[in-house]
Computed example of a mutant assay.
Amino acid sequence: MTHLNDTMPTNFLATHRKYAHLTKEERVMIATLKSQGLSNRAIGRQLRVNHQTINNELKRGTVRQIRRQKFNGKTYDYPYHIYSYEAGQNIYLK
């Protein structure tokens, strides 16, 4: 039987403790796994943290981006939101 955690390095999983803050590496993994379309619960299972921790981190590190497009002399702004592990890490450090 294979588990989702079989793809993770064993030393990474062994070092995570309960009630510990997320590391920069974990935030990078959250960004990667979320971009692959995994749910918060699936990401939480892989990182061995509660799915609510993933949800909180995604809220903390989500930033607003704006894509601008010019058409017929007018500029149109198209805002969208994306998770940035750098933003999450910076907010955590503050």
Rank of each mutant, 00 (worst) to 15 (best):
L58D: 02
E57V: 02
N5S: 04
Q52D: 05
K70Q: 14
I91N: 07
G73M: 01
K18Q: 07
Y80P: 07
L47R: 01
E26S: 00
E86N: 07
H16A: 05
V63L: 07
Y78V: 04
K94N: 13
G37C: 06
L47D: 00
A31R: 15
T15V: 09
R67V: 13
S39I: 04
G73A: 00
H21E: 14
L47G: 02
P9E: 15
V49S: 05
D77T: 10
I82D: 14
L93T: 00
I82G: 08
L93E: 06
K34W: 03
Q89D: 07
N72G: 08
I30W: 02
Y78M: 03
S84G: 05
N11S: 12
I54L: 05
A14C: 08
L22V: 13
T32V: 12
K74A: 08
G44Q: 04
R64Y: 01
H51N: 03
T32Q: 13
R41G: 13
G73Q: 00
G73R: 01
T32I: 15
V49W: 02
M1L: 15
N11L: 11
Q65W: 07
I91C: 09
T53W: 10
H16L: 05
R41Y: 10
Q52C: 10
V63A: 04
R64M: 06
E57H: 02
K18I: 01
G37S: 06
M1Y: 11
T7E: 11
I91V: 13
N40W: 07
R48Y: 02
Q36F: 08
I91A: 13
I43S: 04
L4Y: 09
R17I: 12
I66T: 07
Y19P: 01
R45N: 13
T15C: 09
G44Y: 06
Y92L: 02
G37A: 04
T7M: 13
